[in-house]
Design a protein around this nucleic acid. Structure first.
Lengths: 133, 133
DNA sequence: CTAAAACCTGACGTCGACGTGAGGTGCAAA
DNA sequence: TTTGCACCTCACGTCGACGTCAGGTTTTAG
C-alpha cells in the first residue's frame, strides 16, 4: 500500500505519516523508486498512534510505548509508565466531567441571567461566579 | 489583593494572570504606583478560566465566553457555541474512555506477551495489533 | 532610611504535531 | 511517449499558553 491510501484509510494526513516515521513510530519498506510501501497492518497501527495521542499521552511516552511495541522489546519501567498514563487519563476524564458541569452552569446563567443585584454573590448556587465588574 | 496572592490562591502563575489580562479575560485596578489590585472574586474567576481551558475549549471560544461574561452582554450565537463546546467535551470524554480501553489492551499485552507465532494476527482479541515488522 | 521582596513592562524562547511551499521524481494509464 | 497525479526530500511556518530573562520601580518589613 502506498502512503496516500494508508492516510485515507486511517484518516490522517500524508504529512502525519511521514512525521510518524521520522519519530520512529512507523516503519515502511521502499520501492525501487524510493516510495514508501506499507503492509495492511499499518492502518491499524496508525489508528493506535492516533488513539494514544488522543488519550493525551505526552509525546515522549507515546514514542517510548510505540518504540517498545515496535521493537518487540519491553523496556524496564514501561509498564509503570503505562499505568501512570492510565491514571492520568482517568484524572483527565474526571476533570472533563467537572468542566462540563461548570460549563452547564455557565449555559444556565446565559440562558437565564440572574438579576443584576444578585450578580457576584451567588456563592451557594449552581451559577458560576462570573461577574465582578 | 495583589497579583502574587491571587496566583497562589488560584494555583496559577503570575505570568498567567498577566496573560489573561492581556487577553481581556481578567481586569484589574491599579494602585497609584501602577501595581494590579484584584477583588477577592478574581480567584474564582481565574478558576473558571482554568476550567474552561481544562475543558479544552478552543482559546477563541474561551475569549468570547469570558469577554461576554465579563462585559455582562450575551452576544448572539454564544449559546450555540457553548452548547457545541459542551458536545465537544462529551465527545472528548468518549474518546478518552475508548483510548483508555485501548491502553488497557496494550498493558495486558505488555504484561503477558503473546507467543511470537501469534503476533500480528490476533484480530479478534483485545490485544492491539502492534507488530508488523 | 534601607534592604529585600514583590511588582512592572517589554520581548524573545518553547514545544509539539504537524501545515505548507519549493523543486524535483516515480508510476500507471492512454 | 506523454500526461499528470502521487510521491519524494528539505526546511521554514504555525499556534497557544505561557516561561524566562533583562532592567527598572513600588511596597513592605525592620
Amino acid at each position: 500500500m502506498r502512503i496516500g491510501e494508508v492516510a485515507r484509510r486511517a484518516g490522517v494526513s500524508v504529512r502525519a505519516l511521514r512525521y510518524y516515521e521520522e519519530q520512529d513510530l512507523l516503519r515502511a519498506e521502499r520501492s525501487s523508486g524510493g516510495q514508501r510501501r506499507y503492509p495492511d497492518s499499518a492502518v491499524d497501527r496508525v489508528q493506535l498512534i492516533q488513539q494514544l495521542y488522543a488519550a493525551g499521552l505526552p509525546s515522549r511516552s507515546v514514542r517510548e510505548v510505540l518504540r517498545s511495541v515496535y521493537a518487540g522489546t519491553v523496556e524496564p519501567g514501561l509498564l509503570d509508565r503505562l499505568e501512570s498514563e492510565r491514571a492520568r487519563i482517568t484524572t483527565r476524564i474526571t476533570e472533563l466531567l467537572a468542566a462540563r458541569d461548570r460549563l452547564d452552569g455557565v449555559i444556565a446563567t446565559t440562558r437565564n441571567p440572574p438579576p443584576a443585584c444578585a450578580r457576584g454573590r451567588a456563592r451557594g448556587g449552581p451559577a458560576p461566579s462570573a461577574a465582578h465588574g
